[in-house]
């Protein structure tokens, strides 16, 4: 995973991944369907971006059953939170320096 000197993380350049991280930084955990609704993306699209973030240990997957229905929810990891905050700060700095 590439983090640039400016503090920007390459992985967050994608809007869907950026959206996922924005949701998870302010919520302890968020389930798949609610993420889908909030970000307005398709199942497949969301799943592939979640996978990418998970593989880089930026988010954690919690699988559980509510009654008989499987329910998958996601939460941010310490690394993920740190990188996202740095990314956010870097974006703000770039805008401010204009």
């Amino acid at each position: 995973m590439r983090v640039e000197i400016s503090g920007l993380t390459k992985l967050f350049e994608n809007r869907v991944r950026l959206g996922i991280m924005s949701v998870l930084i302010v919520n302890d955990s968020y389930d798949f369907n609610s993420l889908k609704a909030t970000l307005g993306v398709t199942d497949g699209n969301l799943a592939s971006h979640l996978k990418a973030l998970e593989e880089n240990s930026l988010i954690r997957v919690n699988k559980q059953f509510i009654g008989r229905k499987p329910n998958t929810s996601y939460s941010i990891t310490e690394t993920g939170a740190q990188l996202f905050r740095t990314h956010l700060k870097a974006l703000e700095d770039i805008i401010k320096s204009q």
């Binding site: 809007r15 950026l18 924005s22 949701v23 930084i25 302010v26 909030t38 770039i94």
Partner: peptide, 15 residues
């Protein structure tokens, strides 16, 4: 970049 910031703020607030 400024669009990114807008998206982040909007999603954080709405969620």
């Amino acid at each position: 970049y400024s669009e990114d910031l807008k998206v982040i703020k909007k999603v954080m607030e709405e969620s």
